[in-house]
Amino acid sequence: MTDNVTGDIAPGSWSPKRDRAKAIQTIVKIIFGSFAAISILTTIGILATLIFETIEFFKEVPISQFLTDTRWTPLFASKQFGIFVLVSATMMISVISIMVALPLGLLSAICLSEYATPRIRRILKPMLEILAGVPTVVYGYFALLTVTPFLQIFLPDLQGFNALSAGLVLGIMITPMVASLSEDALYAVPRSLKDGAYALGATKRETVTSVVLPAALSGIVSSLILATSRAVGETMIVTLAAGANPTLGFNPFVPVMTMTAFIVQITKGDAPYGTIEYKTLYAVGMTLFIMTFALNIFSFWFVRRFREKYD
C-alpha cells in the first residue's frame, strides 16, 4: 500500500515511513505503560511485605494478646505486645496536632481567601509553602531543643521528652496542608452565593461563617482528615521529641512511644531477618498502614458524599 502512494507522488523520492513510526509508537506505548504499572507494583509490594511478615508475627504472638495487652516490651526478656500502648501515643499526639492545625489552618485559609488583598496573598502563600517544605528532622530539632525548653518555663512538670511539644510542632507542620486544601475549598464557593448573603444584609463575618464555610465544609473536613493521616504517619518529630518510652495512657507531659518511633528504634539498630523484632516491625507497620489508609479512604468518601456542586 505504501508503495502505491510513493508511486503517486513521483517527483520527490520522500515517503513517510508510516509502518516504522507506528511500530515505534507501539513499543513506546508498551514501555511507558509498564512504567505506569510500577506504581501498582509498589502498592502490591507494600501490601505483600506487610501481610507476609505480619502473618509470620501472628504465628508467634496470638492476635488477642496483640490487641489486649497493656504493656509493650518486645525488647525485654518477658515480651509483651500490647499494640494499644503505641496506638494511644500516636492518637494523643495526632489529636494535639489537630487542635493546633484546625484553628491555625482554617483561619489562615479564611484570611487568604477572604481578607488578604491579592498582593499580600502573593507574599503569604509562598511563606506557608516554605513551612510545608521544611524537612521533618528540622521540626524534630525545633520541638526537642527549642519548644520543649520554652514550654518548661511555664510547665515545670514537663519532661525533656514529651508528647505535648511533639504534638504542637506536628500541628505547625500540618497547618500549611490544612490551610492550602481548605483555601481551595473556600475558593471554589461561587461569588454569587456570597453576593446573595451580602444583599440580605449579612456582614462579612456572617457571610463567611454561615454561607461560605458550610458550602465548603466537605473540602475542609476532608483536608482535616488528610492532615490527621499525615500526623499519624509522621516519624521524625515524634521520634526526636516524644521519646521512646512505651506507656499506656494519655498524659502529654511524659515521654511516650508512637508506632513510627518504634519502627525507627528497631531499624536504627540491626534487626536481623527472621527475629521476632523484625516481624514486630511489620506488624506495627501494618497497623500504621491500616490506620492511615482508612483515614485517606474516609476523606475521599467524605468529599464525594457531601460535596455541594455549584455550576
Binding site: 488528610l226 516519624t235 513510627t260 531499624t267
Partner: peptide
C-alpha cells in the same frame, strides 16, 4: 492512594 502512604512504610518496603 500511594501519596497518602506514610514515608516510613516505604522504608519498611
Amino acid at each position: 492512594n500511594l501519596a497518602g502512604v506514610p514515608s516510613i512504610i516505604y522504608g519498611l518496603l
